[in-house]
Simulated assay, not measured.
Amino acid sequence: MEKVGNLPLAVPMEDAPRLFGMSKSHLYRMGRAGRIDLRKVGRKTVVITDTVVAYLNSLPTTARLALPSAKNPK
């Protein structure tokens, strides 16, 4: 089986939330929206790993939060 990094090509839906750090419902929503690829293998749904990696890479990065100034403006 091919791998993406250390992850398998496809991950069972029941393991995907733990591996990808997002809820099962979010994964299904992203699948319906066409952002990630979900496949049926028999009765089980699997998540195609490289599509989740591509989705995560497409998200904007968060700006570094500025630390509050040490000066107290009064």
Rank of each mutant, 00 (worst) to 15 (best):
R39E: 14
V46K: 01
S69Y: 02
T62H: 09
N6E: 14
E2Y: 09
M1T: 13
E2D: 13
S25N: 13
L67F: 09
G21F: 01
P73L: 12
E2T: 14
I48D: 00
P60F: 04
R64V: 09
P8M: 00
L59G: 08
V53L: 07
K24G: 08
L9T: 08
T62L: 15
A10R: 12
S58R: 09
Y28M: 12
G5W: 05
Y55E: 09
L59T: 13
D37R: 12
K40G: 02
H26F: 05
R32Y: 05
N72K: 11
K3T: 15
I36C: 01
A54L: 06
N72C: 01
I36F: 04
K71F: 13
T45A: 09
G31R: 05
M22L: 13
R32N: 10
T49I: 08
M13E: 02
K71L: 15
K3Q: 14
K3E: 14
D37H: 07
G34C: 05
N57F: 00
P73H: 06
G5H: 11
N6F: 07
G5R: 15
S25C: 04
G21V: 02
D15V: 03
A16Y: 00
P60Y: 00
L65M: 11
P17S: 05
T62S: 13
T62C: 10
L65G: 09
N6W: 04
V47F: 02
V41A: 02
R43F: 03
R35F: 07
R43Q: 11
R35Y: 07
V47Y: 01
V53F: 00
K44L: 10
T51S: 15
E14A: 06
M22E: 05
A10P: 00
L9F: 09
N6M: 11
G5F: 07
L27G: 05
G21K: 07
A70Q: 11
N57H: 09
T51H: 01
G5K: 14
G21L: 06
L19G: 00
Y28W: 07
I48M: 14
Y55D: 08
A63N: 11
N6D: 15
P68Q: 11
R39C: 07
R18I: 04
A54P: 00
L19S: 04
R29N: 10
S23P: 03
G21P: 03
A33V: 00
I48H: 03
E14N: 10
V4T: 14
A16N: 05
K74N: 09
V52I: 05
R43L: 10
R29T: 07
L59E: 07
A63M: 12
D50S: 13
D50Y: 03
L27N: 02
L7K: 11
Y28A: 10
T45R: 05
E2K: 15
V11H: 01
V53P: 00
L65K: 14
D37S: 11
S25M: 10
T62A: 15
T51E: 03
H26Q: 13
T45K: 06
N6Q: 12
L59M: 14
M13F: 00
